[in-house]
């Protein structure tokens, strides 16, 4: 009889233990995630603090910065220009089909220019540059780490932060605003092409509406976003490449992390900056 009771109680005890161990595992997993987050945040903070500290110290590698400006700005023009052109064209077409339902077709020029200048220009240019430049930076620095080229810099009395990171980040911050300005203009022209040649709008009236509606604040907010996105893209590319793991897998993982983290941060900071500029 006693034995039977014991057997009866055993499954309940096992269930309780199983439940406790599951809770224990969940809490341990959560704790590990928190620790990992805190550790990564600390590492990124130290990385950027060191970089900022090195920015104000001689020597300044102007030649390297100009090379990065060409790579980030000039060489990104085709991909950013094409993206902006088709975005402006699609925007005009979509706005027309939507606004035609309540006879508001005349607002197309306003929608295209404000969307491009405030939002789509900086965000799309940022995402395209993150894919093109952020990935390349992470791969280049990751390979330099794996092949001991960064160690070699130290043995040659050269600070790797000052030589590798500072020129890239400064170039990123300086290159993105003009790139976005070009994207804005191309995007608006994309909208104008569709409006005039497909939808039959008057060319002069479209352009006058565009110029009249856009304000300095609209353009300025987009350029500030561009500079911040430039910092994010180059910062993430450099951070993940500089701290790349070993081998081809380590470099590949660093490249992926650089693009993903930069893309997410661009979207997060886009909201934060929009809130700061336009929230009443």
């Amino acid at each position: 009889m006693k034995k039977t009771e014991q057997h009866k109680h055993q499954p309940a005890t096992h269930q309780a233990r199983g439940g406790l161990s599951r809770i224990h595992a969940a809490v341990a997993g959560l704790g590990a995630m928190v620790l990992q987050f805190v550790s990564a945040t600390g590492q990124i903070s130290v990385f950027f603090a060191t970089t900022l500290g090195q920015m104000v110290q001689r020597p300044f590698y102007l030649r390297l910065m100009l090379r990065q400006l060409r790579e980030i700005g000039y060489n990104s023009l085709p991909v950013v220009g094409l993206t902006a052109l088709f975005t402006g064209m699609v925007l005009a077409l979509q706005s027309y089909t939507g606004f035609a339902r309540f006879n508001a077709e005349s607002a197309i020029a306003n929608v295209v220019v404000l969307s491009m200048v405030r939002e789509l220009g900086p965000v799309l240019a940022g995402l395209m540059v993150a894919g093109r430049v952020g990935a390349a930076m992470a791969a280049e620095l990751g390979t330099m780490r794996v092949t001991e080229q960064i160690d070699a810099l130290q043995t040659l009395s050269t600070n790797p932060y000052r030589y590798l990171i500072v020129p890239r980040i400064v170039a990123g911050v300086l290159a993105l605003p003009p790139l976005v300005l070009v994207a804005d203009v191309i995007g608006v022209m994309g909208g104008w092409i569709v409006a005039v040649y497909k939808l039959g709008f008057n060319s002069g009236a479209y352009l006058i509406t565009t110029v009249n509606i856009v304000t300095f604040e609209d353009v300025f907010s987009g350029l500030v976003k561009a500079a911040v996105f430039g910092f994010i893209i180059t910062g993430m590319g450099c951070y993940h490449g500089f701290n790349s793991g070993r081998g081809a897998q380590g470099v590949g993982a660093a490249t992926t992390r650089a693009v993903v983290s930069a893309s997410i941060l661009i979207l997060v900071f886009d909201y934060v900056l929009t809130e700061a500029f336009f929230a009443k």
């Binding site: 020597p59 092949t147 001991e148 080229q149 160690d151 070699a152 040659l156 009395s157 050269t158 030589y163």
Partner: peptide
């Protein structure tokens, strides 16, 4: 650990130019 984006002479003289 040569800098692969630089020529041989730039590698050799790296410490002389930058340091």
């Amino acid at each position: 650990a040569l800098f692969d984006s630089q020529t041989v002479w730039e590698n050799v003289s790296f410490g002389l130019v930058n340091g």
